[in-house]
């Protein structure tokens, strides 16, 4: 075959791959929008499910997802930021401990999300919760069962690497000259971190937080048995209550509800809400990160 023909075919094939991926992305978006849009209105967003979840809205699932991701972020962001500071500012390149920490972070990033669920069940509920009940409640069951706190903390572990990676990347874009300027003025290392490094990585911390929230809002496997509930007639009142979540709601409605076909509009609309949420969060994060990278160059 002629070389030019081969070149054209190969380039065409690679181009088609790109188009196919983009086509799939667009299809998912388009079908979800077309399927979900007609049912998406204020009542749907603001009402509880009704009539055995065949009618009504998804208000408790929205609130549950929001509360869960907030608790998750409160737990994950400080730990993530501090770990990133350690890796970027305190650990030397050759330190074995830093290498182990880095490997641990990567491991956390690739461990299947269902394993976090198992861990949440075994550790938070079966170990911490049970012992809390033994100590605080005289053995009466309160913390030793699934609830929003354990689900959020489980999710926090899952999203910890997301925060660490984003923040470390941002910290590393701060030029060495800035740190040297501060240190040469007699600032201590911690003063330099607090006054120069952290203010310079605000957008990175923000990116990491948004990505973590987006990831946490969409994950279902870790909360399957650590706190998500099929249906609740009340919003969670305390950290020891269960909660409804958007992702879990989609799963339940599309696979286990009594009449899957009849509730299809609800399923599509819920998916659209979740997708809009994660999609817009990601879009913001990607833009922010892109800017940080550009600035670094």
């Amino acid at each position: 075959m002629n070389r030019n023909v081969k070149d054209t075919i190969f380039e065409g094939l690679t181009g088609i791959s790109v188009l196919l991926i983009i086509f799939i992305i667009v299809s998912i978006l388009a079908i979800t929008i077309v399927g979900g849009w007609p049912n998406l209105n204020w009542t749907f967003l603001s009402e509880f499910p009704k009539d055995g979840m065949t009618k009504g809205g998804i208000f408790p699932a929205i609130v549950g997802t929001a509360v869960m991701t907030i608790i998750m972020a409160i737990a994950a962001v400080p730990f993530g930021v501090i770990t990133a500071i350690y890796l970027a500012e305190y650990a030397s390149e050759k330190s074995v401990i830093a290498k182990i920490i880095r490997f641990a972070v990567k491991t956390l990033a690739v461990v299947p999300s269902i394993i976090f669920g198992l861990f949440g069940l075994g550790f938070f509920i079966g170990f911490i919760g049970k012992n809390m009940d033994g100590l605080l409640n005289g053995g009466e069951l309160r913390w030793g069962q699934p609830n929003i706190l354990w689900a959020s903390l489980t999710m926090a572990l899952l999203t910890l690497p997301v925060v660490i990676v984003s923040v470390e990347e941002a910290i590393r874009t701060i030029p060495r000259e800035m740190r040297e300027a501060s240190l040469a003025l007699g600032a201590t290392k911690w003063q330099t971190i607090r006054k120069v490094v952290l203010p310079g990585s605000v957008s990175g911390i923000l990116t990491g937080t948004i990505l973590a929230v987006s990831r946490g809002a969409g994950e279902v496997a870790p909360i399957l048995f650590t706190g998500a509930a099929y249906f609740l007639s009340n919003l969670p009142h305390s950290l020891s209550d269960q909660f409804m979540s958007l992702g879990y709601h989609i799963y339940i409605m599309s696979t286990q509800s009594s009449n899957v076909d009849a509730t299809q509009p609800i399923q599509f609309a819920t998916t659209l809400v979740l997708l809009l949420l994660t999609f817009s969060l990601n879009a913001v994060a990607v833009t922010l990160r892109y800017r940080i990278r550009k600035k670094a160059k």
């Binding site: 800035m178 040297e180 300027a181 501060s182 040469a184």
Partner: peptide, 9 residues
């Protein structure tokens, strides 16, 4: 210390 590349915050 003053550096080669000016480095104001």
């Amino acid at each position: 210390m003053i550096f080669q590349k000016s480095n104001p915050f």
